[in-house]
Amino acid sequence: MNRRPSPILEHGVVSAAGPMLVFSLYLLAAGHNQPGGGFAGGLVAGVTVVLAWAAGGPDTVRRIVPVRSSVLLGLGLVIATLTGFVSLVAGGAFLESGYLERTLPLIGTVKLVSPLGFDIGVYLVVVGMSLGLVRALGGEPPEEEVGS
């Protein structure tokens, strides 16, 4: 497939990618109370990656998410697992959730729940997966030195 991606399409996708990634983060953050969560969020980011590939190929993908997929995968896995261990070390059960409620000046009441940390791990893995799969299966022409 030695087509030149259309510059207009590419531009469009790259400019749309930012809002889509923000939306995916919103899904991640809202998931505990609204539809969404790490999976849905990660998958939206994944779809963004696919669109970027379709519009501009691997280079565009790299411009949008400039990380190796393996780093995201490893990081996600480590974060999710460590969340489990944090509560274990704190004397609770593995993966037991902890809650922290603070009233911060200006922002108001912020509720921090440890499952969010876990969900971030999920999100990272799903993004890393989308990235890795697109890079590997779409890896033609294979000019890029793929990290994963």
Partner: peptide
């Protein structure tokens, strides 16, 4: 992420390994 978070932990592991495998 909470009641059955352990399933999810296993699940994302599957995803990570599948990705490494595809590469």
């Amino acid at each position: 992420v909470d009641f059955r978070g352990f399933d999810t932990l296993g699940e994302i592991t599957v995803l990570a390994i599948a990705t490494l495998g595809v590469s």
